[in-house]
Design a protein around this nucleic acid. Structure first.
Lengths: 220, 220
DNA sequence: GACTATTCGACATTTTTGGTCGATTTATAG
DNA sequence: CTATAAATCGACCAAAAATGTCGAATAGTC
């Protein structure tokens, strides 16, 4: 048994189903090891939680970096960031953050500020450059827009969990993403945005929607 | 403060977010009363859980009854049952049943057998009559079909919670419902089924889908 | 076979949570 | 207005659950 296997298992369990659901006994049991062994690698539960948080932050950081890499223009970069955020929000459950905030407030604060810093750092420059290029509206206050977006993401993340009866998380985050993009785009860059969105739409969601349309056609 | 208010609050909290998430202190706090007052109406936590289970069963029973009432033929009755099940599955979270099974196994067994009995009792007769009428396939073994359906519902209920990233619960349960209906319908009653489904589709989901189609049209 | 490293699961300790009780407040009747 | 009864509060207790520890047992190596 090694540290990485334990950490990845905890990461998977915590981020998908929440932290409090899993006791140290439960985690050890899932790994088919004893608690002693578990505590050999992680001196305390808090330590394990901290490491998982670190992994979450690293994951997001890397996703945002790859989203920016190889993109030709600033619009594509912002689109990449948005897609990365949708993927991230889908991967991490709300319960994870709720448990973290309640039972590990210090770690929660640390993680959220880190995540926000990553987003702000990446997005701000791209936004400012895009405004200069005229692809984003000139009336934007970049720093304020980023701050507002961060708050919106947080809120979307909260209530998306409550809407699962009627909408998939994918739908919710996608709508929120569209809202932001159409909110910042300059009028004459609108065709470019819609063209780019078509690409994204086709690559990710199209298979499902087309399939569904075929099925529903039978009923109408 | 009265018993009903407490019970309904507990019902709402438990069925939507799960049982174990709420301690007696938490429940009292939400009601803005003290624990003493709470224990005046419910002698123990188990007692409260039992009452909530009773309410769940009553709720389902009544939904199934109203689903059958005023229906002209057996196909419509089955459709009504299916719609009632979708509504029920959407209202009660999987966590509720998971918590119940783990921490109150006796109450879990009692509730599930009650719910299954209600479904079987309602559905069996309608199914048998429908077979005689020729609206459902003659090769059906009604009792076995009902048993299988109950198992399928249980399973759908479990994994629907895991699919919320990509599909809304509504979509999942609806697909499962279609599968069952097309599975039991007699070939020459197929047009009738499709006609009925159109009604249901329009009354419930159409507003959303149409709206969404309008939005997505902008991108394609 | 002796020595070391690793693992186990029972046990101790801490935290949490269900349940209780006297003190206090509020309502009601004379 | 006062006396009595009813209802409520929140500090407290006890039981349950979870974290963290330790000696014994096992596996591996020379």
């Amino acid at each position: 048994m090694n540290e990485l296997v334990i950490l990845e298992t905890a990461y998977r369990l915590f981020t998908i189903q929440g932290i409090q659901l899993f006791t140290m006994d439960e985690i050890a049991s899932r790994l088919a090891i004893s608690k002693k062994t578990l505590y050999r690698f992680f001196t305390s539960r808090q330590h394990l939680v901290q490491q998982v948080c670190q992994l979450v932050a690293d994951d997001y950081s890397q996703a945002m970096e790859t989203a920016e890499n190889g993109k030709a223009d600033n619009l594509q970069r912002v689109l990449g960031f948005m897609a990365a955020n949708v993927a991230f929000c889908k991967k991490i459950s709300f319960t994870f953050f709720a448990d973290l905030q309640k039972h590990y407030p210090a770690e929660y604060l640390n993680l959220t500020t880190t995540l926000n810093a990553i987003t702000e750092q990446r997005l701000l420059g791209v936004l400012e450059q895009g405004i200069v290029e005229g692809v984003f509206r000139g009336s934007l206050h970049p720093k304020l827009v980023v701050t507002i977006l961060l708050q919106h993401i947080k809120r979307d993340f909260e209530f998306a969990a409550e809407l699962v009866n009627d909408y998939s998380k994918d739908e919710v985050f996608r709508q929120a993403m569209y809202l932001f993009l159409y909110g910042i785009i300059a009028p004459n860059a609108l065709p470019q945005l819609e063209n780019e969105l078509k690409q994204y739409s086709l690559s990710n969601r199209a298979a499902h929607t087309e399939e569904r349309n075929n099925i529903t056609q039978q009923f109408n």
